[in-house]
Lab assay of single mutants.
Amino acid sequence: KLPPGWEKRMFANGTVYYFNHITNASQFERPSG
């Protein structure tokens, strides 16, 4: 399970990334916590 605010998303080319809808942060590494 991801930390609060984070969700797993995917680009059109299939690349997975993680987006935080609270802070609008995005990253390729899975957030810890």
Rank of each mutant, 00 (worst) to 15 (best):
A12R: 10
E29S: 07
F19M: 03
R9Q: 05
Q27I: 07
A25V: 15
P4G: 08
T15I: 12
R30W: 12
R9P: 00
M10S: 10
P4R: 10
W6F: 01
P3S: 05
A12L: 09
K1Y: 12
E7P: 00
S32T: 14
P31L: 01
N13Q: 04
W6S: 00
Y17V: 07
G33M: 14
Q27M: 07
P4V: 10
A12P: 15
T15L: 12
F11A: 14
N20W: 03
M10W: 12
G33I: 14
V16G: 03
F11D: 15
L2T: 03
S26A: 12
A12Y: 06
K8Q: 14
I22L: 12
W6V: 01
R9F: 07
N24R: 10
N20S: 05
E7Q: 08
L2M: 08
M10T: 13
P4H: 12
G33S: 13
E7N: 05
S26E: 10
K8I: 15
T15V: 14
Y17G: 03
I22N: 10
T23Q: 05
S32I: 13
R30V: 12
S26W: 15
P31Y: 01
S32D: 12
P31G: 01
N24D: 06
Y18F: 08
P31I: 01
E29A: 08
A25D: 09
P4A: 12
E7D: 05
V16K: 04
N13P: 02
P3K: 04
T23L: 07
S26K: 11
S26R: 12
T23E: 05
P3W: 05
P3N: 04
Y17M: 06
N20L: 02
K8S: 08
V16R: 04
F28W: 11
E7R: 06
P3Q: 05
E7Y: 05
G5K: 02
F11Q: 13
K8L: 14
P4M: 11
R9M: 10
P4K: 10
G5H: 11
N13F: 03
F11L: 15
N24P: 01
P31W: 02
E29R: 06
V16H: 07
A12C: 13
A12D: 11
T23I: 05
A25W: 09
N20G: 00
S26L: 15
G14F: 04
N13S: 08
V16L: 07
P3E: 06
G14M: 04
P31S: 01
P31V: 02
Y17D: 03
N20K: 01
W6Q: 00
K8F: 09
S26V: 15
P3L: 06
F19V: 07
L2R: 01
R9K: 09
S32H: 12
I22R: 08
G33N: 13
T15W: 07
M10N: 07
G33W: 15
V16I: 14
Y18E: 00
Q27T: 10
E29G: 07
S32Q: 12
T23D: 05
A12V: 08
A25G: 07
N13L: 03
Y17F: 08
L2E: 08
M10F: 13
S26F: 15
I22K: 08
P4N: 10
N13T: 06
A12K: 11
K1W: 13
F28S: 09
T23K: 04
T15R: 11
Y17S: 02
G14S: 03
N24L: 13
F28A: 08
A12I: 08
F19D: 00
N20A: 01
E7F: 06
F19S: 01
G14Q: 05
R9A: 05
T23V: 04
Q27L: 06
T15G: 08
P3G: 07
L2Q: 02
L2H: 01
R30D: 11
G5V: 04
H21P: 09
N24F: 10
M10D: 04
E29H: 10
K1L: 14
Y17L: 05
W6E: 00
S32W: 12
E29V: 08
Y17N: 01
Q27K: 04
K8V: 15
V16Y: 11
S32P: 11
G14I: 03
G5N: 09
P3R: 03
V16E: 10
H21Y: 15
R9W: 04
Y17H: 03
P3T: 04
W6H: 00
K1E: 15
K1D: 15
Y17R: 02
S32N: 13
S26H: 11
W6T: 00
T23G: 02
F19E: 02
G5M: 06
Y17W: 08
L2G: 02
I22V: 11
G5A: 06
N20P: 00
T23W: 05
G5S: 05
S26Q: 13
S26M: 15
G5R: 02
Q27H: 05
R9H: 06
K1N: 14
A25S: 11
G5T: 03
F28I: 11
R30P: 13
R9I: 07
E7M: 06
K1A: 15
K1I: 14
V16S: 07
G5Q: 07
K1G: 14
F11E: 11
F28H: 07
Y17Q: 03
S32A: 12
Q27E: 04
I22F: 13
Q27W: 05
Y18S: 00
S26I: 15
M10L: 11
A25K: 13
W6K: 00
H21A: 12
I22E: 10
G14H: 02
Q27V: 08
P4W: 14
V16M: 07
E29N: 09
K8T: 10
H21D: 05
L2W: 04
R30H: 14
F11I: 05
N13M: 03
A25P: 01
K8W: 08
K8P: 06
A25N: 09
E29I: 08
F19H: 07
L2F: 04
W6R: 00
G5D: 06
Y18A: 00
V16F: 12
E7V: 11
N24W: 06
A25Q: 15
Q27N: 04
E29F: 08
F19K: 03
I22A: 08
L2S: 02
T23P: 00
G33T: 13
N24K: 13
G14P: 00
Y18V: 00
N13I: 02
Y18M: 00
R9L: 09
Y17K: 03
N13D: 15
S32E: 13
F11H: 14
W6N: 00
E7H: 08
I22P: 02
N20T: 01
H21W: 14
R9T: 03
F28R: 09
S32Y: 13
G5L: 04
T23N: 07
V16A: 07
G14K: 04
N13R: 03
S26D: 03
M10I: 12
M10R: 10
P31N: 01
S32G: 13
E7T: 09
N24Q: 14
G14V: 02
